[in-house]
Design a protein around this nucleic acid. Structure first.
Length: 275
DNA sequence: TACCAGGTAAAAA
DNA sequence: TTTTTACATGGT
């Protein structure tokens, strides 16, 4: 079944993240398709003219799949915005059709970010893959990410065996046990989401920013503390000198109200475009 | 071996 | 309030 996506949409670019840092059992790339479990149901997503082809072809899956592939982002508005900045315009032109994938589940999004704190993305993917295979649910092809309920009853020592530092193991379990309704955060403005999340142990501004960017798709989220964002901004705008978090936060003002897309395009551009 | 990686929390200034 | 320091783990 065809699931339409707004133009432009570049399948290879938009799914690059599922291949770039190692295999991800919860978003499994197999022979040109992404396999993922949505709300307990396994779906295979492949390239198609005008959008993507999904199997099984259940119309109820169309909405979640669209969101997963970054449908909420206003690429046309972003492209018009970018023309005023020759550097950004070049990146946007070279990466036309790139849509940031969105993490469909809030707990999965937060755990994934905690996993990636202060480790290389390659390490983070490997650790998360072990977490998924240890506590997740096996389906025919992909694995469902571990449920909050399952990790709430996990022992931190079990997570430590997978490569989590002792403190991060505690963060993941305590987040699972927290009474906070993560689904309700979507109703709050950006700053209140950040205040709510950063009150939890192990979640700082960086993790909250990525939650806004990659789960809630907030247009103006700007993870200025992210080392890769700092490096990408620096490479494109600061002659390679690596800017501080404060510098990059201030520099990002010029990209408002498209800071989220800007961050993603600069990150991917820094990684895949020839210098 | 030393250093770094898509940070966070707590101590110190 | 802002700045500095300790912290765990895997990869190179």
């Amino acid at each position: 079944m065809l699931v339409e996506l707004p133009e432009p949409f570049d399948w290879e670019l938009s799914t690059e993240r599922f291949r770039a840092f190692g295999p991800d059992p919860a978003n499994l790339w197999v022979e040109g398709r992404v396999h993922r479990v949505f709300d307990g149901r396994e779906v295979a997503i492949g390239e198609a003219r005008g959008g993507v082809e999904i199997e099984p072809g259940d119309p109820a899956l169309a909405g979640p799949v669209r969101r997963f592939l970054g449908e909420p982002f206003d690429l046309d508005g972003f492209a018009r915005f970018a023309v005023s900045d020759s550097v950004l315009a070049g990146v946007v032109e070279a990466l036309r059709g790139l849509r940031p994938p969105l993490s469909p589940d809030p707990y999965e999004a937060l755990v994934s970010s905690i996993t990636a704190q202060q480790v290389s993305l390659q390490s983070a993917f490997a650790i998360r893959a072990r977490l998924v295979r240890r506590f997740g649910v096996a389906h025919a092809t992909p694995w469902a990410f571990p449920t909050r309920e399952r990790l709430a009853e996990a022992a931190p020592a079990e997570l430590r065996e997978l490569g989590f530092s002792g403190r991060k193991a505690e963060y993941v379990v305590s987040l699972a046990q927290s009474p906070l309704d993560l689904d309700s955060l979507g109703a709050l403005p950006d700053d209140e989401v950040k205040l709510t999340l950063t009150a939890l142990p192990g979640i700082g501004e960086w993790t909250a920013d990525w939650f806004l960017a990659r789960h809630l798709a907030r247009p103006d989220a700007w993870p200025a503390g992210d080392l890769a964002v700092r490096k990408a901004v620096s490479a494109f705008y600061l002659e390679g000198r690596i800017g501080s978090t404060d510098e990059v936060r201030a520099f990002g003002e010029r990209f408002s109200p498209f800071r989220n897309l800007t961050a993603h395009y600069l990150l991917v551009g820094h990684r895949v475009l020839p210098r």
